[in-house]
């Protein structure tokens, strides 16, 4: 029991130390975007007020409990049962303090919601359970790569349910809603790698819907963009290119590569199998069938599954589909 208590106490002190080991404060991660002040300044204002008021309440409470504890022969002393002046004072002082709070929060919110005119725009697509970032030149990535020192605007939409994009180090959070576009922005202060989370509950893979934000110097960013844009050219084999495409387009959200059925059937070892369809027909799996399933997913529905896959027609070139087919062939049943 004593060991346990000592252990817990040492954990508590470790919490205090660990929390600061990343260069942030006890409460907040290090401010990595130029707008971080919008959150941090008012955060610390409220924090110190809270320390003060909590200490005040705690001190008064302890003082009263000790000083006026019930003792034999000592009766309670009658004091005023109300005091308009006192009550007005302790209503109006907090009122003044929260008005400042509101105003500071409002100013910060305007900053967080107002991207500069000349911002670099990246399209964000959220789906269960991955992120897809599309750059102005059509390049797609599953991590968010951005240039340092430039405002970046994210224009976001969801393919299925509501998600929310959160980058704590940049003080950025915005819901990603199906059927409409939402926007947010930030400007990174220095190169580095930061966490990106989905913060709106979205089902099974919610806690795996993570990505990294990689902040590059401009030249490095340009180089990355060129490399990432040419998946086929920058892969050693078509299989490798296919695997990248599989991840980039989030195929794995619905189709496993290890044999377990998900929303859609697994893609492990399908070549050589014969598939039965919901209309009763059946077919041996070949390249043409896979290509058709990508371009016209509703044409043949596997028995036991629903027709809910979106079409990829026009989103994948012939070479890319070929690479994907090579990748799928590499997932043999063995």
């Amino acid at each position: 029991m004593v060991d346990f208590a000592v252990g817990t106490l040492s954990d508590l002190s470790r919490m205090a130390l660990l929390a600061q080991s990343d260069g942030g404060s006890f409460w907040l991660p290090p401010p990595e975007s130029v707008s971080s002040w919008a959150v941090d300044n008012v955060f610390y204002y409220i924090l110190y007020l809270s320390y003060f008021f909590f200490a005040l309440i705690f001190a008064v409470l302890v003082l009263f409990v000790v000083r006026y504890r019930r003792r034999p022969g000592v009766e309670a002393v009658k004091t005023a049962t109300h005091s308009t002046l006192l009550e007005a004072v302790w209503s109006l002082i907090p009122l003044g303090l929260v008005i400042i709070m509101f105003y500071a929060g409002f100013v910060g919110y305007v900053e967080l919601r107002s991207p500069p005119e000349q911002a670099y725009e990246i399209l964000v697509t959220a789906r269960k359970w991955s992120w897809q970032f599309t750059y102005p030149d059509g390049t797609m990535a599953t991590d968010l790569h951005v240039p340092v020192g430039e405002p970046v605007r994210l224009v976001m939409s969801s393919e299925d349910v509501i998600h929310s994009l959160s980058i704590p180090a940049f003080r950025v959070k915005m819901d990603v809603v199906p059927g409409r576009y939402t926007r947010t922005w930030f400007q990174a202060k220095q190169p580095g790698k930061f966490d990106l989370y989905c913060t709106e509950y979205c089902g099974t893979g919610h806690s795996d819907m993570l990505a990294s934000v990689v902040v590059h110097q401009r030249e490095a960013f340009d180089a990355w963009l060129v490399e990432a844009g040419d998946i086929l050219g920058n892969s050693a084999t078509p299989v490798e290119a296919g695997e990248k495409l599989f991840r980039l387009h989030g195929c794995g959200s619905c189709h496993s590569t290890d044999g377990t059925p998900r929303i859609g059937p697994t893609l492990k070892g399908i070549f050589g199998e014969t598939h039965r369809f919901s209309d009763g027909s059946s077919l041996a799996v070949d390249e043409n069938y896979v290509r058709q399933s990508i371009n016209e997913p509703g044409a043949k529905i596997r028995e036991g599954y629903k027709n809910q896959m979106p079409t990829y027609k026009g989103r994948l070139s012939n070479d890319e589909i070929t690479a994907l087919i090579q990748y799928l062939k590499s997932l043999d049943g063995g």
Partner: peptide, 14 residues
Amino acid sequence: LFLATLSTDVQLHD
């Protein structure tokens, strides 16, 4: 109070 304040809520929401 942190959650009622617009900008800090952006950081703390969810």
